[in-house]
């Protein structure tokens, strides 16, 4: 067992979506533990509730239609679900930050990338704009963007997808978060760029020591990076073990299927309707 301090402890999280076609229990009782500095994988097929879990931790579920209907998310022993919007805002981007799947659309097209990263810094730290600019350039350097001074004043459309995802990582790490959530961060990139971004994230995790929650449907991604792997299926965690155990003795057939090529099970027997 892990004897590091527990950073995040999710207990029986339930997030439902209230659509015109009925209630969709996207997350239906997920339990998940992340220790300080640990890399945790959350794997599962599309629609199993991985991303909704991440957005629930950030409290970014769009309401309506979504709502966290039950459970607890302890962060340093305090329940995030009981925090006010303002308290949560101070945690977001500072203690917990997140990288999204779509690097092409996740950056605001009308502001320079420098502005956008500096904003994340000045929102949480009392520093002047010159200092923020210096920090931003350091961050761009850290994520391996060449000529960071010049890139600082470029707009997102002047960069490739891989570069933009590096910018997103720089933004997410700019306040030294204790937890980084990577929601399919490499899925939209082509394979060589995927490998570069994963290498970068692994290197930064070793260097900065933050905990990382990697959400993906690609077992190969977590196999390399994660210490613990959780497998989600139809809104629940069906298996949780160290990476070694999981690949040595698969218990749930979904993983056996997922690790081969083929069709995943259709969870219609559990949730009546999946409108997305």
């Amino acid at each position: 067992m892990d004897n590091r301090e527990i950073l995040v402890d999710i207990k029986n999280l339930r997030t439902f979506f209230y659509t015109e076609d009925g209630v969709v229990p996207a997350v239906d009782g997920i339990d998940l533990t992340i220790h300080r500095g640990e890399v945790v994988g959350l794997v599962g097929e599309s629609g199993c509730g991985k991303s909704v879990t991440a957005l629930s931790i950030m409290r970014l579920i769009a309401n309506p239609p979504g709502k966290i209907v039950g459970g607890e998310i302890f962060f340093h022993g305090e329940d995030l679900l009981k925090k006010s919007d303002d308290q949560m805002r101070l945690i977001r981007g500072d203690k917990i930050s997140m990288i999204f799947q779509e690097p092409m659309t996740s950056l605001n097209p009308v502001y320079t990338i420098g502005d956008q990263i500096s904003e994340a810094i000045t929102l949480h730290q009392k520093i002047d704009s010159a200092e923020a600019k210096k920090r931003t350039i350091d961050m761009l350097h850290l994520v391996g963007i060449p000529e960071p001074e010049r890139r600082f004043s470029q707009y997102p459309h002047e960069m490739s997808g891989g570069m933009r995802q590096r910018v997103m990582i720089a933004m997410a790490l700019s306040c030294n978060p204790e937890l980084l959530i990577s929601d399919e961060a490499t899925t939209a990139l082509d394979v060589t760029i995927q490998a570069q971004i994963l290498d970068l994230m692994r290197g930064l995790q070793k260097k900065l020591g933050m905990a990382v929650l990697i959400i993906t449907h690609n077992l190969a991604v977590v196999a390399e990076m994660a210490e613990t792997i959780n497998i989600a299926y139809a809104g629940k965690i069906v298996e949780s073990a160290t990476a070694k155990e999981i690949f040595k003795s698969p218990r749930h057939d979904q993983r056996a299927i997922a690790s081969h090529r083929g069709h995943g099970p259709v969870p219609l027997s559990h949730a009546q309707r999946l409108p997305f």
């Binding site: 999204f100 949480h124 933004m171």
Partner: peptide
């Protein structure tokens, strides 16, 4: 509904 609005929320910007 754009992703960059979600990004702005995710970095902790007030509404």
């Amino acid at each position: 509904r754009q992703d960059y609005v979600r990004t702005a929320r995710a970095k902790g910007a007030p509404e």
